[in-house]
Computed example of a mutant assay.
Amino acid sequence: MIRGIRGATTVTENREDEIIEATEILLKEIIEQNKIEANMVASIFISVTEDITAAFPAKAIRLINGWTFVPVMCMREIPVPSGLPKCIRVMLHVNTMVPQEEINHIYLRNAITLRPDLKVENRSL
């Protein structure tokens, strides 16, 4: 069965190094919290708000050992006026038998405001 695993983070500046680093931290946390291996992943969608233009955040997945062949696509979020700025969102499509209620969706930095109901206590990333 394929399950969607969501996550999001934010950056403070539209700089390539910050975008890649924040995305890598987010992806590694999702991978760790959900015990995901690259061969379990069908694809990854990454979206950014329109104020993020300095880099493709998908570049971060290539920094993770063994994830070279996972298909990744970047896209732009709908520019809703009240939306969270400088936000990177990810959706991993993962082959797993883990029940939906046991999936760990990860929201870091200012993105925790998007889904406070999914907040993991004591997360300081």
Rank of each mutant, 00 (worst) to 15 (best):
P85H: 02
G4H: 12
V48Y: 06
R76K: 10
I61G: 06
N104S: 08
S124K: 13
S82C: 10
P57L: 08
P99Y: 05
V80S: 05
L26C: 02
V70R: 06
S47Q: 15
T68K: 08
Q33W: 07
N14C: 14
N110F: 09
L92I: 00
F56D: 15
A58C: 14
C87H: 04
S82L: 09
Q100R: 10
H105I: 01
P57G: 07
N65Y: 05
G66S: 08
L108S: 00
T10E: 00
S47M: 15
E50C: 11
N95W: 13
N110L: 15
N65K: 04
R76F: 15
L108R: 00
I106V: 09
L26S: 00
I46T: 10
C74Y: 13
N110G: 12
D51K: 05
E77A: 08
I36S: 02
L108T: 02
I88Q: 00
I25D: 11
N39T: 07
N39S: 14
L63A: 11
P57Q: 10
L84K: 03
I64P: 00
G4E: 11
E32P: 01
G66R: 02
R123K: 05
N95H: 11
N65W: 09
T9K: 04
P99N: 08
R109E: 02
D17F: 14
I2V: 08
V70A: 13
A58S: 15
K28F: 09
V72L: 10
I64K: 03
I78H: 03
I112C: 06
I103S: 01
I64T: 04
M75E: 12
P85F: 01
M75S: 14
V72E: 08
P71M: 07
R115H: 05
D17K: 15
M97N: 14
I31Y: 09
M91D: 07
P57V: 09
G66F: 08
N104L: 07
I44L: 08
T10N: 01
E77K: 14
S124M: 13
E121Q: 00
K28P: 06
M97T: 15
T9N: 07
N95A: 12
V120A: 04
T12K: 12
I30D: 02
P71V: 09
R76P: 09
I52N: 09
R15A: 15
V94W: 05
I36F: 09
R76N: 13
G83D: 13
K119M: 03
E50N: 07
I106M: 06
T96V: 09
A60C: 08
T68G: 00
V11K: 01
T49Y: 01
A55I: 14
R89H: 12
M1P: 15
K86T: 12
I31C: 10
N110C: 10
P116A: 01
